[in-house]
Amino acid sequence: MTGPAPLCVVLVEPAGPLNVGSVARLCANFAVHDLRLVTPRCDPSDPDALRMAVHGRSVLTSARIYPTLLAAVSDCSRVVATAGRLDHGTIPLGPPEAVLPWAISGSGQQPIALVFGREDHGLTNAELLLSQRVITLHSSDTYPSLNLSHAVAVVLHDIARLQTGPSPHAEPVLVSPETPETEPAGPKALEACLDDAEELLLEVGFLMKHTARARMAKVRGLLQRGLIRADEVALLRGMVRQMRWAVRHHRL
């Protein structure tokens, strides 16, 4: 029987060694062994980071560094991002109790990514669109952004509570059953399909270069919200490639 998928914590451009060390400690607290850093703006081996990691030093020293968020989550089956900003455009946000049960209901060997943004301005909309779901925590509307390590603590605690079961006095949390057949497509496969689609749509004149980025972001958001599967992405990509071949050979 396949067990729950492993978790990985992804920090995008963290600037503070104290925060990075604290997150490594939190990973150890909640038995998360996979810490990923996207172009960190501080040295993960800084003495302050090592001091704050305490018994999570092994997590910190084994943390992997990636050049982009897409590279960091390319092997993940589910990607959940966090956002404390209010200027997120049309990207839908959900509270932890609505998003996290879905996030951890997957199984298999592919990790589930929990993505946290920069201390000063979080994640960009383009980065948020690489995830299937986006969490916003129950903080005040007048000051929604939490300290990076505090946000990680809240999310990991909520996941641990869901995994170990509610207390006898808690309200039950309903989780929709998931099977491997309904696992969403990974970010790398979806991005490749969208790149092919954008190229075709530019060729046929549906997209213009100056508006392509915004319009493709809407398409990406639509597919992510629909939790498009890997086999469905493969089908769409095959259709796009065949249409592009037909256009180039004047078969339409």
Rank of each mutant, 00 (worst) to 15 (best):
G226P: 13
N125C: 06
G165M: 05
C8E: 15
P168S: 08
L190R: 10
E13V: 00
Q163R: 14
V23A: 02
P40L: 01
L236V: 04
S145L: 11
V154Y: 03
L50E: 10
A160V: 03
P40F: 01
A189Q: 06
L174K: 05
W245H: 10
P180Y: 12
V219N: 14
T136L: 00
F30M: 01
C193F: 11
A217N: 14
V204M: 13
P6V: 00
A214Q: 14
D48G: 10
I135Q: 02
T124G: 14
H157G: 04
A170E: 15
T2N: 11
P187T: 03
L37R: 04
D196S: 14
G238L: 04
T142D: 14
P101D: 11
Q110W: 09
V80N: 08
L207Q: 03
A83I: 12
L227H: 07
C8D: 15
I91V: 01
H33F: 08
L129H: 13
G186I: 04
Q224K: 15
R248L: 09
K209S: 10
D196P: 07
I112V: 13
T39Q: 07
L200C: 02
R41Y: 12
G21R: 00
V204G: 05
R220C: 00
L148I: 11
L207S: 08
Y66S: 05
A31V: 01
L236R: 00
S149R: 10
L26V: 07
G94S: 06
P177L: 13
L26P: 01
L60G: 00
L86W: 03
